[in-house]
Design a protein around this nucleic acid. Structure first.
Length: 183
DNA sequence: TCTTCGATTGTCT
DNA sequence: GACAATCGAAGAA
């Protein structure tokens, strides 16, 4: 298994922290997807290194954030060695801290749907393109990962990735999505 | 320069 | 369940 898949699995249960507006907003990661290299036709790096995908080629621990559908920001953790494009898309978290801020940003929808999608999550955490390329290992990082709880194997579901649309097989059906049952 | 389309969401039927 | 919203990156011309 390549490193990016181990990272995607290990991120489940960890805490994603954002201090983009000065105060802590945090949640437990429970859904991730792996995007692995130029040969993965679902990965943005499938066409090689471009201005947009350059961050994916940097060392693991950087934030790859991109804009899509004309209105949505997506947040990824770069997970490969320097020079190899791989990243983990954080698809969903369960809010822990900064509930009031999230509520303000996500009203009027119900709490159970505040962070249950990749773009909903970035909106709740205040993550935008200005954070693209950040090193989350830096001491003064605005977005970073903290240790959380360990998710036992029996609580982890593995499924095909979501929203791949016209991505050809076999990539479309690769079991590269990891979902933790944190109920 | 022009055209296509997306790692989605929210609304309407 | 169907589909519009909305715009920048990437590939074609």
């Amino acid at each position: 298994m390549r490193a990016v898949h181990a990272v995607a699995r290990d991120l489940l249960g960890k805490t994603l922290v954002s201090t983009t507006n000065g105060s802590r907003i945090a949640g437990t990661i429970y859904e991730t997807e792996a995007y692995d290299g130029e040969q993965d036709l679902a990965c943005h790096a499938r066409s090689g290194k471009t201005a947009r995908t350059a961050v994916m080629y940097s060392e693991g621990g950087h934030a790859y954030i991109y804009f899509t559908y004309g209105m949505h920001w997506m947040f990824n953790c770069v997970a490969g060695a320097s020079g190899y494009p791989a990243a983990v898309l954080i698809r969903a978290i369960q809010p822990i801290e900064g509930i009031d801020i999230i509520r303000d940003r996500r009203q009027p929808i119900d709490q159970s749907h505040w962070c249950d999608g990749p773009a909903k999550m970035t909106k709740s955490l205040g993550i935008t393109g200005m954070h693209n390329g950040m090193d989350m290992c830096q001491k003064n990082a605005v977005i970073y990962i903290e240790e959380g709880c360990l998710i036992p194997e029996e609580k982890v579901k593995i499924t095909p990735r979501i929203g791949l649309g016209r991505t050809p097989e076999p990539w479309k059906s690769k079991l590269w999505r990891y979902v933790a049952d944190i109920s």
